[in-house]
Design a binder for these strands. Structure first.
Length: 324
RNA sequence: CGCGGGGUGGAGGAGCGGUACCUCGUCAGGCUCAUAAUCUGAAGACCCCGGUUCGAAUCCGGGCCCCGCAA
């Protein structure tokens, strides 16, 4: 058996998958489809995605897309390229684009989507974040066949992964990508040998986590990372982990002052209370209340960063900013 | 050259033309059965190079580094 494979992906964490595909003697990675270079970073420099860099380094043909509209426009060209390369199977992982209909239909049953949740739970673009935000005990990976609906295709293989309630999105993505890379080649080959029977998803159990700021979208937005102090310390802490490494949960200095959810803090005079503060990590602590013997949970930040300053610990931050 | 903020003792911050201050830490000593508690004392700093000035951490020019927005 010898299969020609195309990989659709944009995530910088996708290299383990590329390595796994490329390293299997029965699989020929022939084409990589990814995003065009983007203006990135502090000086708006044009930078290629890591998927593209990897493809160039390994001398594998690449096909670049600027945005969704560009994808529609180039769909025919891509179809030609796919047939020219005699692609048997397409692997899609953390792609960031909706695959156009014609392509899905043309390659029906030949597109495998690597999705980072236990489908039908958390369909959409933010499955990893959603599992952390909801404080789930486990999540995982699902290999599905792509069809028109949003992550709704039949399941080929599913792998569970326990959660420790400590992981950030960045850490969990890495773990899941590594896990996916380990299982991807054999899953692909088994499917090609018809050893796997696709199982329909139970649509009645489907869950989708929508962006609070954009209720029709499953992407994460910067606004979502603004801390809502009406939530419980646990919820806030889960979001802090979910929004790391991007966009990073944030609030303002004035929101920290005399905040019920935190230990009491008064800012020293002269500091600009409107400055933004990023909270990279925090923990929830149960505190005995003075009387009554009741307990109340408090959020204790651990690593924070005031706009324009360096990342620092909560203790150091208090030494500099709190009134004594 | 996308917009903006900043580099002050070991850490985090004030000061923004004229004796360098605060919180934490460190060291010595006191008080303690004892201490991460408390008291007294001490060491230790203005990123680099030029310029303006009687005088610069503070103003100007250049360099290196860090960060927020934006993606």
């Amino acid at each position: 058996m010898n299969l020609n494979i195309a990989f659709f992906g944009t995530s910088d964490r996708a290299t383990p998958l590329l390595e796994a595909l490329n390293g299997d003697p029965q699989l020929n990675l022939k084409l990589v489809v990814t995003k065009t270079d983007r203006k990135m970073g502090r000086h708006q420099k044009l930078k290629p995605t890591q998927v593209k860099e990897w493809a160039e380094k390994h001398n594998i043909a690449k096909f670049e897309l600027k945005n969704q509209r560009d994808f529609q426009k180039k769909e025919k060209a891509l179809l030609r390229e796919l047939s020219k390369q005699r692609i048997d199977l397409i692997i899609v992982a953390d792609f960031g684009f909706m695959v156009p209909e014609t392509l899905i239909q043309t390659y029906k049953g030949k597109i495998i989507n690597v999705h980072f949740s236990l489908l039908p739970k958390y369909r959409g673009a933010n499955p990893v974040q959603a599992a952390i935000i909801n404080g789930d005990k486990e999540t995982g990976i699902t290999f599905i066949l792509m069809e028109e609906g949003l992550d709704s295709g039949p399941i080929l293989h599913q792998i569970k992964h326990p959660l420790t309630k400590k992981e950030t999105t960045g850490m969990l993505y890495k773990e899941l990508f590594d896990l996916a890379a380990k299982r991807l080649p054999e899953t692909v080959k088994k499917y090609a040998n018809q050893e796997l029977t696709p199982q329909q998803q139970d649509d009645s159990k489907a869950e989708i986590y929508y962006s609070p700021s954009h209720p029709k979208s499953t992407y994460i937005y910067k606004e979502d990372a603004k801390i809502n102090w009406n939530e419980t310390p646990q919820q806030i802490e889960q979001k802090i982990r979910a929004f790391n490494p991007w966009p990073i949960a944030w609030t303002t200095l004035e929101a920290l002052e005399h905040n019920e959810k935190l230990e009491d803090l008064a800012l020293r005079e002269g500091v600009d209370a409107s400055l933004r503060v990023k909270i990279f990590s925090a923990e929830v602590v149960e505190k005995e209340m003075a009387e009554a013997g009741s307990k109340k949970s408090k959020l204790i930040p651990k690593t924070i960063q005031v706009a324009g300053k360096k990342k620092t610990s909560w203790e150091n931050f208090k030494n500099g900013y709190a009134k004594k």
